[in-house]
Design a protein around this nucleic acid. Structure first.
Length: 269
DNA sequence: CTGGGTAAC
DNA sequence: GTTACCCAG
């Protein structure tokens, strides 16, 4: 047997060994988490609501939000994007309305007019296009934040489309979105709506035995960089916002998933 | 898809 | 306030 042949065979065995060991580790983690007892899946529309730092959580029929009166916008908007929600139906955009469910008074859309900023949806209209009611419900001023147009139609739009891609690929994801309402911020309009300097999104895919998370923190400016450059750990976002995103998860699982800034398991193709 | 604006009724 | 049309990233 030639020397080259021996090396080739050896290399193949080493490769198989490495792959086998990785597979073993994945199975071990899966078994570990299963043995911890994952809570039975219930209606995720309420199951995965984050905590509120403002004490004003509002439930609409197709999404929920926590309103921050100081900044006249939501600190988070949360909803489940099921695969069955994905739709290309095109409804005419209605006018934005003041969300009457906000006890402290939500911002008026006029505060955005001629501000130079978009009325940027937090729960995108494109994620609620499965019915006229759900679509129109996203046009509440409690569901928008001032966004630069280049940002909104640029990298932010890219992320929203990627999430629709994932919702289709992974049979639905749960989404939490908001601006970082911290530090020095410009304000616009009579309502003094704060203009966040960063926006975030947190996703959880709970459709498999082992849930997976991914979080993004993106500066409020357009970028041509790949989306995975903006991945952060959920822990980072929680430290930044004071929000506990997945308090319902078993602590062991929560701690393990939220500490990770890996985007393993999320396809960026 | 993400949004903007203006004119006329 | 609402509807129609035109615009850009």
């Amino acid at each position: 047997m030639s020397r080259e042949k021996v090396f080739s065979i050896l290399a193949i065995f080493i490769l198989l060994g490495v792959l086998g060991y990785e597979y073993f580790l994945e199975e071990k983690e899966r078994a570990d988490i299963q043995s911890l007892g994952v809570k039975p899946k219930v209606d995720t529309n309420t199951y995965f609501l984050p905590t509120s730092t403002t004490g004003q959580i509002i439930h609409h029929s197709s999404y929920s939000l926590s309103y921050d009166e100081d900044h006249e916008q939501a600190e988070w908007v949360a909803y489940e994007l099921k695969k069955s929600h994905l739709s290309t139906r095109k409804f005419k955009r209605p006018y934005f309305e003041i969300d009457k469910a906000v006890k402290t008074g939500a911002a008026h859309w006029r505060s955005y007019k001629n501000s130079g900023y978009d009325r940027g949806h937090l729960c995108p209209a494109g994620d609620r296009s499965y019915s006229r009611e759900a679509h129109d419900e996203t046009f509440l001023t409690s569901n928008i934040s001032p966004q630069k147009h280049d940002f909104n139609s640029g990298i932010w739009n890219r992320l929203e489309q990627k999430i629709r891609y994932w919702a289709n690929k992974y049979e639905g994801v749960f989404v939490v979105t908001g601006g970082i309402l911290n530090g020095e911020m410009e304000t616009i309009g009579q309502d003094a709506v704060s203009v966040p300097n960063q926006f975030y999104k947190v996703l959880i895919d709970n459709n498999k035995v082992l849930p997976k998370m991914i979080a993004f923190l993106i500066p409020h400016e357009d970028s041509d960089k790949p989306l995975y450059d903006f991945v952060v750990s959920v822990d980072d976002l929680e430290n930044l916002t004071g929000i506990d995103f997945f308090p319902q998860l078993d602590d062991t699982i929560e701690n393990r998933l939220e500490a990770s800034s890996s985007y393993k398991g999320w396809s960026f193709n």
